[in-house]
């Protein structure tokens, strides 16, 4: 058969596609479970961190998750019972500077104090807005008192972290007032959801 004949070209292309795509499909299928459990672990561990539960290994995280946390019925968040107190966390996505920001925000059932926040996804400028994923920033939210509108992320702060949990404000990231504003909007929207879910029935 000539190499440039139509039948050879069609047969060759068909066989080549099959030869390269079938192994890929197999590899994809073989790792599917692992990828799915990675995805679940990312969500579960973020929920645990937002609730303020520490864990060592991924296995420990999953067992703590299983014993303490349950999913909210609509899949929008999590409910947890920690030391006899009920907490709710919601997953919330809002606009960011370059793309959307997705966070897990946890508070007590009535939405009086934040329990903690965790960033699931963000595409903010690395080194500026991207610093919202740093521990000092997230730690400020732990136990922060919430006002009627939630809390304020204050751009006039020192930019090193606000230690007072009773003033309803945390420090913004220096040089990232816009990103800090977006985070504030997401947190406060999440607080509203938490109050709607867990507030007086």
């Amino acid at each position: 058969m000539k190499k440039d004949s139509v039948s050879y070209v069609v047969a060759f292309t068909f066989l080549a596609c099959a030869a390269f795509i079938v192994p890929l499909a197999i590899a994809n299928e073989a790792t599917k479970k692992r990828v799915e459990s990675n995805r679940l672990f990312a969500a579960h561990s973020a929920a645990l961190r937002a609730f303020g539960v520490s864990y060592g290994s991924p296995a420990e995280a999953e067992s703590k998750y299983a014993s303490l946390v349950s999913d909210l019925p609509d899949g929008k968040g999590f409910r947890a019972q920690i030391d006899g107190k009920a907490y709710i966390a919601v997953k919330k996505t809002g606009g960011g500077l370059w793309g959307s920001i997705t966070m897990v925000v946890a508070a007590d059932e009535k939405g009086e104090r934040l329990q903690g926040i965790e960033i699931l996804d963000q595409m903010e400028t690395p080194g500026l807005g991207g610093r919202i994923d740093e521990d000092w920033f997230k730690k400020q939210f732990r136990g922060e008192k919430l006002g009627p509108e939630g809390l304020t992320i204050d751009t006039a702060g020192s930019g090193t972290g606000d230690g007072d949990p009773d003033n309803g404000r945390v420090d913004a990231v220096t040089g990232a007032s816009l990103t800090s504003g977006f985070v504030q909007a997401i947190v406060n929207a999440a607080v509203k959801d938490i109050r709607a879910t867990g507030g007086p029935k």
Partner: peptide, 24 residues
Amino acid sequence: LLPRKVRMIIQVLVLSFYVILVDI
């Protein structure tokens, strides 16, 4: 074995095979 007419298509196919493997 490569027919000239589909040379580039096959090149892309083979190269993307390895790239997707890395991704997976």
